[in-house]
Amino acid sequence: MAETNTKNQILSQAGDATGNELPAIRVSNLVKTFGNKFALNRVSFDVKKGEFLTIFGPNGAGKTTLIRILSTISTATSGEITLYGLSPHKHATQIRRQIGVIAHQTFLYDDLTAEENLRFYGRLYSVQGLPAKIEQIITDVGLHLRRRDRVRTFSRGMQQRLSIARAMLHDPALLLLDEPYTGLDQHASEMLSGWLRRLRSANRTTLMVTHDLERGVDLADRIAILTNGKLVFDQKRSQITPDSFRDTYYEFVEKSG
């Protein structure tokens, strides 16, 4: 019930005073500094509801910092962020209910079984009808037969599938993906892409940060480039071919040094 109320509250705030639909994510002049170093320098962009935005960037570009701020784990030095019209600073708990994060780290406990890991996260998120939901989602990710095995016995690909189940268990409206392909073999990567396509077709808003050009372009509605903490490129996927984007990307990365 609590979760439904929160969801309704967020959906009711999905339009502004003029009746225009608010973007799922709005970032304006976002700055994050560590000492004298700018991790993010006046970054601004919107992500519409249901849109899939991929942000590319080399190591140290500020991609993970951006995801950490959007997911309410870290705070910005300055600038404004709203997620479904809510400020992560003021409504952190409400927003966290609506966010699912898949990263290269799985956030899973090696000494718990697959089922126990999902039960743990499900209880933290107060998921209603948890046993049935776990049964369903663990079947969806193809781990039903291994549900009572400890995670430490799983391959990297299986762990990442379970990580998808963990992130989707509370049915988040917004997915944040931080280098989700890192460490996956070809088969596991294909499986992850298939899952992300399914989630995309369910009209879920997704923001992925990666340096995997091929997979990132393939899935996105919009693509952007972040280098040295600055957003230097932002275009619709339909307006650029993968080959020309590759050239553009390397050009920006070389310029950034």
Binding site: S71, T93, L108, Y109
Partner: peptide, 14 residues
């Protein structure tokens, strides 16, 4: 070490 701290911090809890 397992990255689980981030999982805890993402949860809707104080």
């Amino acid at each position: 070490d397992k990255g689980c701290m981030q999982g805890l911090m993402l949860a809707p809890i104080d």
